[in-house]
Amino acid sequence: MPRTVYFFATCLVDMFYPNAGLAGMALIKREGLKVIYPRNQTCCGQPAYNAGYRDEARKVAAAQLDLFPGNHPIVVPSGSCAGMMKHHYPDLFFGKPEHAKAVDVADRVWELTGFLTDVLNIKLKDLGEPLRVALHTSCSTRREMGMAHAGESLLAQLDAVEVVEQTHKAECCGFGGSFAVKQPEISSAMVRDKTEALRATEASLVVSQDSGCLMNIGGAIEHQGEGPKTQHIAEFLWERTRER
């Protein structure tokens, strides 16, 4: 088991979900690991990469490559940012001087929930009240990172939490980064279906591994009116299990 990890929090967690970042770090720290937060981190570069602006993405990604000098895992509380770093950095830097460094970073990247289960084999003790929860596993966590089992098994460890399953649970919520802006009508139709499916479970909380999905699903539910709350899975796990 590693003794130290780097925590790459992602730009969305930094600005919109800082508590999720803190919770993720706290969960790892509680397992006895040292958590390093490289203070010069900004963004993995994914937004520009997915918009086709590879030079701009590379410039930003390059600024992250030197943040992880020690040979420690890099933990990311987002499937899509982890996917960017793990699967697209090697391509993005192919034929560039930073290629070796990018591959080295890629090799060490873990999505947070996958790291908790597959590396730390974390055991959780639920201290919370009974609650009905639905999990929206982000597409990147599920497919690109292959970590759909992680979120499910973490929630299953919480005794007082009843996990309910929405229909079409493996289907995308319609966020897709720039997609939500460039194809707003399709995106709206998708998030409407997703929130309907989630409401139908009568869960009082929806958790997810990705901030983008949370913004999309949470924003839509709030816009529609009453409905389940949304929360990053890290924050939820931490709240349920922290000794007060």
């Binding site: 919109f16 937060y37 913004m215 949470g218 816009h223």
Partner: peptide, 15 residues
């Protein structure tokens, strides 16, 4: 924001 609330920026960033 036609179908969603705007995301809320945190009071203080994680950093």
């Amino acid at each position: 924001t036609h179908v969603r609330k705007a995301p809320e920026i945190a009071e203080k960033p994680l950093r």
